[in-house]
Design a protein around this nucleic acid. Sequence first.
DNA 1: CCGAATCCAGAAGGATACTG
DNA 2: CAGTATCCTTCTGGATTCGG
Lengths: 140, 140
Amino acid sequence: MAPTTTAIQRRSEARHAYDAFLKECPTNQLLARISDKWVSLIVAALGERGGPLRYSGLTRKIPGVSQKMLTQTLRSLERDGLVSRTVTASVPVRVDYELTPLGYNLACLMTAVKDWAETHMDDVLAARAEHDSKAAVPTP
Amino acid sequence: MAPTTTAIQRRSEARHAYDAFLKECPTNQLLARISDKWVSLIVAALGERGGPLRYSGLTRKIPGVSQKMLTQTLRSLERDGLVSRTVTASVPVRVDYELTPLGYNLACLMTAVKDWAETHMDDVLAARAEHDSKAAVPTP
DNA sequence: CCGAATCCAGAAGGATACTG
DNA sequence: CAGTATCCTTCTGGATTCGG
């Protein structure tokens, strides 16, 4: 019997090979992790500050973030050794978050990306308007 | 009556202010866009190549991507003026994708981020193991 | 003040089949 | 070869509530 579904099979095999590959090669995992919206914002916020920031401070510095996402993202960043968490047991508990040296290292790149976004934003906007105007007038 | 729900209200207001802010300041939109997993991988793939790449070529170069995500992401990148799409109407249709100058510009940053991930991956892994081992032994 | 836990709507994304 | 369209599962992430 000739293999009639080779294309499908190959694709499926590629996917499973990819899944297995991820376990051995965590680079993609790490890339996916730092390619997260909240990770970018938190690391950028802590990087711009240059020093420690409290939980409530982060909430104010990143408008629109929910406690859930903030806590969740901070935990993963702490686990990955990118931020340090310091608890001061005062009457109202005080928790400070700060980038580790490794985290500051990443913050530089994040800042560069953010600067790129700010610099070339108008180019992208222009391209988007151009593209949309062409697509919107098929029969003038 | 004293305002007992100020914290909740402030948070809610912050969210709506954020939503309104996004319309006037698309920088965050753009940052979120380029902080996408598939965007990173596609831009990196095209950047490493240095030249045009066909649809099927991209499928092979990015294992695990579905046609849906590949097409969808390419469309958005084209709309944003980061990649160009060239159709050659031969017997089997041939489509080439290539980074625009703006796209190449971004690819440099993406490559830097990818390199960072590859360089500091072991540090992150070590921190992760350290963190997990501490959390896994509360009662020895 | 900092966070954990639960609920749930909606978006993301994969599998599959079909077109030109 | 290069998509498009559809279904369906998974996961994201916001709202809310409770605890230390």
